[in-house]
Amino acid sequence: MNTRSDHAPIVQMKNIEKHFGPVIALAGVSVDVYPGECHCLLGDNGAGKSTFIKTMSGVHKPTKGEILFEGRPMNFSTPRDAMDAGIATVHQHLAMIPLMSVARNFFMGNEPTKKIAGISFFDREFADRVTMEEMRKMGINLRGPDQAVGTLSGGERQTVAISRAVYFGAKVLILDEPTSALGVRQTSNVLATIDKVRKQGVAVVFITHNVRHALAVGDRFTVLNRGQTLGTAQRGQITPDELQDMMAGGQELATLEGSLGGTV
């Protein structure tokens, strides 16, 4: 179990609790995320995955508990703070604006500027060039940088969002169910992108409820159930069936197992 002792975790979430009025969304969750790993966060709908990552990315403030970023306690008051520190979130649906061009989307909120006569203008030449380069690296061939994002497939959009986050120096990349709405081939593209990004030393937090997608790229697996964690497992220490059982709380799925034959 000491394979990770040679380097420190980049994010430590310690006993995070989050209450919304009378509802306890998170009841003491602890997770460590290391640089260069793909940490899969699994859980069924309502398990608290979204609340957990929103806490990590500065959208929610934890009711109790501590967040350490690179060893220091962190108090993000806005997503912008988390982003500036290097925690980027790629949301399932809310990442890209379909009517805007790929280049405009890529640099949204981080537009490069150049000064002409003392006034700063959006450096579109630079934006177009970088966008084309980055997209080529990820294997997406654009008709041009002004192609609208709406013309890209779901998988391509996720890839644009991921490469955008990495380009802007994300150290921790939170992917909120990037594969849930995708077909087989698009899913494999996104998983390949995750693998590329991880090899660059970025910590990837991959939220999914699909065990097979998680096992395809994950290094470690944390399962959330009803706002609590059932522990973190290393790759190779756990079987798909065990993961599946933990996600479902080990009950209802057992009876379905026979008829489904382990396909879910």
Binding site: P79, H91, L94, M108
Partner: peptide
Amino acid sequence: EAARNSGV
């Protein structure tokens, strides 16, 4: 919402 997520 997407714009806010990107820091706009």
